[in-house]
Design a protein around this nucleic acid. Sequence first.
DNA 1: TAGATTGTTAATCGATTAACAATC
DNA 2: TAGATTGTTAATCGATTAACAATC
Lengths: 222, 222
Amino acid sequence: MADVIDEIEAAGLPVEGERLSLGVAARLSRYLQVLTQARKMGRETISSQELSEYTHINPTQIRRDLSGFGKFGKRGVGYNVDSLVAEIRKILRTAGQHNIALFGAGHLGQAIASSAIFADHGFQVVAVFDVDEEKVGTEIGDVVVRPLDGGLAKVVAEEEVVVGVLAVPAAAAQEVADRLVEAGVKIIFNYSEQLLQVPPEVTVHTSSPAVDLLYALYFYLA
Amino acid sequence: MADVIDEIEAAGLPVEGERLSLGVAARLSRYLQVLTQARKMGRETISSQELSEYTHINPTQIRRDLSGFGKFGKRGVGYNVDSLVAEIRKILRTAGQHNIALFGAGHLGQAIASSAIFADHGFQVVAVFDVDEEKVGTEIGDVVVRPLDGGLAKVVAEEEVVVGVLAVPAAAAQEVADRLVEAGVKIIFNYSEQLLQVPPEVTVHTSSPAVDLLYALYFYLA
DNA sequence: TAGATTGTTAATCGATTAACAATC
DNA sequence: TAGATTGTTAATCGATTAACAATC
């Protein structure tokens, strides 16, 4: 049996139950976003060619990624949007609901809280924190803004928060990160420019639109 | 001479004047962001190990990327932050100033306009457009909000706008994209969830924080 | 049937990694 | 000198691409 798995792996194909490679997981996430949006637009099927146009990922790569997990497409037609969404969610094991705590109720925080993009992928903002006393007590979405020291650890535990999103000024980001680490949060999403220091078991994702722009510009200018 | 270049290329090293590979350009952009921030924090040198912690890119990969363009580091010490910023900007040919037009003066638009992240990398918001008549005429940063049909093509030409940033609702994104294409803008940065249709010479970058989150979550849950 | 698109192969290219001498 | 970190090699692994038979 181990021989068979070795053989499958040698062929470069993903194995059920195995951890996905970084690249495959990243690409599947991108397919999922396009599919989710295509579904909203009423699309029933989509081809690897179209997925490629929206993700800038090679169509052969897309077919290869997907065919590793099953025969999801129909030749001559493409992939059924609904069923492919379900399949990828199964593969990524993110079919459920995940709770987020948001820090910062300024423009960025309000933009995030009111964006559909998190909700579309099963993320729900269950708590918002801000240091500004004028903002504390106001409502964002249907969540009341709490003071920063308003029982963060308790909220994380009770609401099963798995992700902390930082939409605070750079100067405040490290302190909030420290509190999140202390409360046991393992994933931090950093929208500030601040470089964060965290223990190795915590993952920080820094969102950097300007970096993407530099990169796009290079190919435009060159 | 061509033989020498062939040999260098065969060794996998970048050649002066050649177009960078997608991967190298993307990674250099990320190094640049971390270096920019490290400089703000008063750091004078940084090691490949530290760059790796902030970018999640392998330290050997980082040294390899950089050594392809010159010997920028000091053994036992690391890289000088200031000079490495200058070197990478030279390599990416993005040392200059680039102008942006922003669409949408809501929470997201205001967050973008007031963020330091674009400014840090030489991008300047030179015009803001919005359909909302109440917002038209107000100031964001030091730019007055214009009506959406307020001479977009003229602004693009006169202010040398190279990038259009969409911070509008999904329903409005395609129309703005069409107008940008018509005005000759070749790079569109899309913060809405909308999948945009554009001609092949135009590049769309869709910023998708939720996608990054899905991806991070996969490794946390698995 | 004709056209389109998947699933898959095979060949190439670029990324990743460990290891270590060179050297600050 | 001792410790740290670069620059570079070599070996492996994963991504990319073209091509095309299978089949809807």
